[in-house]
Design a protein around this nucleic acid. Structure first.
Length: 397
DNA sequence: CCTCCACAGGAAGCGCAGGAGT
DNA sequence: ACTCCTGCGCTTCCTGTGGAGG
């Protein structure tokens, strides 16, 4: 036995850990046959050189949206045609410019370098369509695009400008409300078809977990009751399949650490704490630096308690006030030898953090000190504080 | 009632990086 | 090498809002 064996998941618990990763696409996706079928039927025209209708897909995180789309893209590529699907995550491609550039790169390699003007890229888009190409853009996390109205307008106008070819938008969002702050015109063109991914029920999660357990774990190591518990916990909290899978994976790790030969209910219970930290850390790590500092400041104040609210008799729901958070943010920046950004941009950071669910905000109605925004962490302050301080101060102490 | 406070968020514009055209 | 252009992150300035306090 080589010394690496034990790190490679060939121990007594796991068979193949990657099966439990959220990026893994199983051969059969349970309980999504209807959605996948619908989407494919709407896309079919583009394989016969017709423009397909735009689609909006809704569903909370971990309801199989991205997984289903990836599956469809795989099927789509098996068919020979002048149509191509492009998958973009809008957390990275978050502006009209970036989205257009990313799509056009696949057709025009010279666009690899940055610095081209938007009109230039738009011309390339028209040229691509005139060549008879059918472009299907999947915009995952579409609500992250800053100038979405503009993007939708540009794409639909491109359709009108050419006689051949066509471009179809598939928007994927986890918030139903995001449509509300869209321009009515782009809303109606984007919303030609709507498909909803409901959260998984406890029974459905159970089945999904059983499938992954079979592929990812050694035979008979995970107790049925542990699977049921993981499914029940998840269904109660969110119905997020990603959460359920993480729960099971962490439980497996805990069992392995303790040199047990099976995964039991207690391991799942224990895993719960670690999974929350995992999920927060995942989002925090992808955050730009100033966002991290803002979040760190909020976590720090949450632990110490609000200076203003502390003086008040009555309720302290752990809410902070925007002003004091900005002050703390400034202090944190100086600690890190960084220049604090203006109040205006601090507000943008707050909005972004709220969109990611890391922070909850509410307008102060009947409070003190007039009008302010109340801020609260979306998760356990201790966990967020630890994660942010590790990522900000971790390297050099 | 008016004014002030503590904000929200739009608009304009600035400096920079990294093209293209000359 | 140079000018011109664009997107981006950002600052500065501005108008608006609703409760607090006189």
């Amino acid at each position: 036995m080589t010394s690496f064996e034990k790190f490679l998941g060939s121990g007594s618990i796991f068979k193949n850990v990657s099966v439990l990763s959220p990026h893994y696409i199983p051969k059969t996706l349970y309980y999504r046959e209807k959605q996948i079928d619908d989407i494919m039927s709407y896309l079919a025209p583009s394989l016969k050189n017709q423009k397909a209708r735009n689609i909006l897909i809704y569903g909370k995180t971990g309801t199989g949206k991205t997984c289903s789309i990836k599956k469809i893209i795989g099927e789509f590529e098996k068919v020979q045609s002048k149509a191509k699907m492009h998958y973009l995550n809008c957390r990275i491609y978050n502006s009209k410019y970036r989205v257009l550039q990313k799509i056009m790169k696949d057709y025009w390699p010279e666009l690899e370098k940055a610095g081209f003007g938007l009109p230039f890229i738009y011309e390339k888009l028209l040229e691509t369509l005139r060549q008879g190409n059918y472009i299907i853009v999947v915009l995952d996390e579409i609500d992250m695009v800053k100038d979405l109205d503009d993007l939708v307008y540009t794409l639909t106008r491109a359709n009108d400008e050419v006689a051949t070819g066509g471009i179809t938008i598939i928007g994927v969002s986890n918030k139903l409300s995001f449509k509300e702050n869209l321009d009515p015109r782009s809303r109606s063109s984007l919303n030609e078809v709507e498909i909803v991914f409901p959260p998984y029920t406890s029974e459905q999660l159970q089945k999904i977990l059983e499938q992954r357990v079979e592929e990812g774990f050694q035979p008979d190591v995970v107790r049925q009751s542990a699977i049921n518990l993981a499914a029940a916990i998840t269904a109660q909290e969110s119905g997020d399949a990603r959460y359920a899978l993480k729960l099971l994976m962490r439980a497996g790790e805990i069992a392995e650490e303790r040199k047990k030969n099976g995964v039991e209910d207690v391991d799942v219970e224990e895993a719960r704490k670690r999974v929350e930290v995992d999920l927060i850390a995942e989002t925090v790590n992808t955050l730009p630096e100033m966002h991290k500092i803002t979040l760190y400041a909020i976590a720090k104040l949450s632990l110490n308690g609000s200076r203003y609210y502390a003086r008040l008799d009555g309720v302290n729901d752990g809410f902070l006030m925007s002003g004091e958070v900005y002050e703390e943010y400034g202090i944190c920046c100086r600690q890190l030898r960084k220049k604090p950004r203006s109040l205006r941009w601090y507000r943008e950071y707050l909005n972004d953090l709220e969109m990611l669910g890391l922070v909850l905000t509410a307008p102060s109605s009947k409070g003190i000190r007039g009008q302010t925004t109340l801020i609260k962490l979306g998760h356990e302050p201790d966990a967020v504080y630890k994660i942010t301080s590790d990522v900000l101060f971790g390297g050099s102490g």
